[in-house]
Design a protein around this nucleic acid. Sequence first.
DNA 1: CGTATATATTGAACGACGTTCAATTAAACC
DNA 2: GGTTTAATTGAACGTCGTTCAATATATACG
Lengths: 201, 201
Amino acid sequence: MARRSDHTREEQYEMVLAAAREIVVAGGLEALTARKVANAIGYSPGTLYNLFDDFDDLIVHLNGRTLDELHEHLSSVPRTQDPMRDLKRLLRAYLGYLEDNRNLWNVLFEYRLPNNRSLPDWYVNKVAKVLGLIEVALSPLCPSRDPDTLADSARVLWASLHGICSLSGSGKLQVVSDQTVHKMAETLVDCFVSGLQTVHE
Amino acid sequence: MARRSDHTREEQYEMVLAAAREIVVAGGLEALTARKVANAIGYSPGTLYNLFDDFDDLIVHLNGRTLDELHEHLSSVPRTQDPMRDLKRLLRAYLGYLEDNRNLWNVLFEYRLPNNRSLPDWYVNKVAKVLGLIEVALSPLCPSRDPDTLADSARVLWASLHGICSLSGSGKLQVVSDQTVHKMAETLVDCFVSGLQTVHE
DNA sequence: CGTATATATTGAACGACGTTCAATTAAACC
DNA sequence: GGTTTAATTGAACGTCGTTCAATATATACG
């Protein structure tokens, strides 16, 4: 049996990512298997390998979609020129997305490519796009306008926030409530922004 | 075949964790399998289930050992009363341990228990012990001596540092060198400590 | 219109994984 | 020495990602 013309390659790609998304939303990464995705779209497992190099590749594409979603969600927060205010709003939006899309967020950050493989350029660009939002918010704090320093600061803040969400989410910080996570994240932003001002003077 | 008296239960436990450690050091988490551990200690896979609930349990015990090692390594840094100096030294020691024990560190933080299982108390205590080292270093900065605030600050700093190391280690921050990681971590400590002082005034 | 070519699709098969458990063996006890 | 007890085995189960010869259909051509 072969050569069905039910769907184009692009349609299949969309179907796969949509199915993968649903499966992850419902059951997390551990629920996401090749057979289950194939079954959900009405094709056999082998067909997935026409569209993706391997299952890791599929997950990376799914994560790309999640990054797009996250970027869109964060883009909707209004910007003033007050870094502290803007960053607090970004933080709220970020934590909001995390709460509403826990499993997608988990896959986004917990999934690691096997040993020596590195993420594709288009993926790295999506990350950079999100980081750009933080850079914009931070930029009034970097008087020297040194783009490298600004980028570094944004990455530090982004990564730090990730650390808080990640460790607390995996139960490795004896953090009990989302409330505590929010408080810790606020502490981070408060201290970091305030410290950044001091350091740059 | 059964009832060998080659080793006591305790000896077996030690052998398993030593073998698991070696396997992880050599090949990371993906190389760690039940059959390989069993083979390394000269027993069959089934024997592992006399010592551990399941393979997850084994990994948690291995991570417990890693936490002990990390605590011991961090304990060796001398303490002054200068938070910034102490934290910088702790940071250096931390990054040193990470560089020397990459795969162990990766397993420590990347491994997540399946869905709803939570880490055992003895494990949480080991985490708290490491956090205690940061609390001690931070304590001169918390004039109110409010233990909860102090604990939160320590956790924020710890988690933030983890975020930097974790994201850069997985290639999700387009960070190229260990040098950059070190620089970002220094930025974090600088800003956080400086900000903490400002916020508390 | 029929035939040849090309390709999308399948599903069984492979090896590896964690895990289980009846069978087996040796230690411990009386 | 016979009986009980328990540690150990290794084959087996169901799962996983992945492969690939076989197959069926769409397309191109004569």
